[in-house]
Amino acid sequence: MTKKRIVHYINQFFAGIGGEEKADVKPEKRDGVVGPGMAFKGQLTDVAEIVGTVICGDSYFNENEAEASETVLEMIKSYDPDIVIVGPSFNAGRYGVAAGAVAKLVDENLHLPVVGGMYPENPGFELYRKHGYFVEVGNSAATMRKAIPAMSAVVKQIIDGNEEVTGYMPKGLRENVFREERGSKRAVEMLVNKIQGKEFTTEYPMPTFDRVDPAPAVKDITKARIALVSSGGPVPKGNPDHIESSSASKYGKYSLKDIDDFTPENGQTAHGGYDPVYANEDLDRVLPVDVIKEMLANGEIGSLHDYWYATVGNGTSVANAKKFGTEIAAQLKEDGVDAVILTST
């Protein structure tokens, strides 16, 4: 078996360049092992070779992230690795965040496995946990002797192609697997165990939800600037942004200037999660443009925001929905909107 190629990312301290006073050093690469790489070499000698080490000062990385990212990624790539090791960064916050960011770069751009080592409370772990196998290590470099074998064990499992890699802190990602028995049989087994008071393991631990308190009521609606936002998929006819019928990856922003009333000719729904017939006949049923324009003309509201925002809620992950909501809300605030009519389906 040819040995796997590993690139190791470390900071200025572990490279022996210096402590805080040298935290602003720019990225550099050195062939072979540097610092803790020597200990990894000892553990992995039969299966892998550390072909290069990339070093960057923690302050430099965090203060010049875009530039540092580009350089570090290029340096890692230049060694054509199979696996990347970052750290261990223990409970060093800026080192952890930099190591996590490097894990993300490698995961998203090179699609290679990344192994790191962090103390669970290192902020870099929570931020970047989904991008690598982060092994739980102690909170200071004094625990290096324990960290190296634990991280090496994970590297070896990856090299072996193990289906179930163990020994790292969960990435918090849901991944599909085929199970031995079909779902109904597993459900019946689980029920029998639950009835008999025996141990059972849920296949999906229910999430804890954010609950949002409603904003205080608008004091004077006749002076308020109102916007229309919807997850019911109301879009101009033809769905110009191609918003997906399910699992939307984007939202659209559309002008209300020339629309006083929706007709089958100027509007439709892009949503694939409900009967679209009635929405396509008259999209005011999803986004009440006709009524709001009337109210505007009658002076019942102060003013109307020039655009409506629309996405499709159907099958769209909560994470994506949160992202759209944050962006839309920021734009509305910038445009001086006081209140929003938010419709679903």
Binding site: P170, E175, N176, V177, F178, R182, G183
Partner: peptide
Amino acid sequence: TNELGFFNLSAKTI
């Protein structure tokens, strides 16, 4: 991803 449990596909946290 049939929810009557007709199939073997499932998911786990990694």
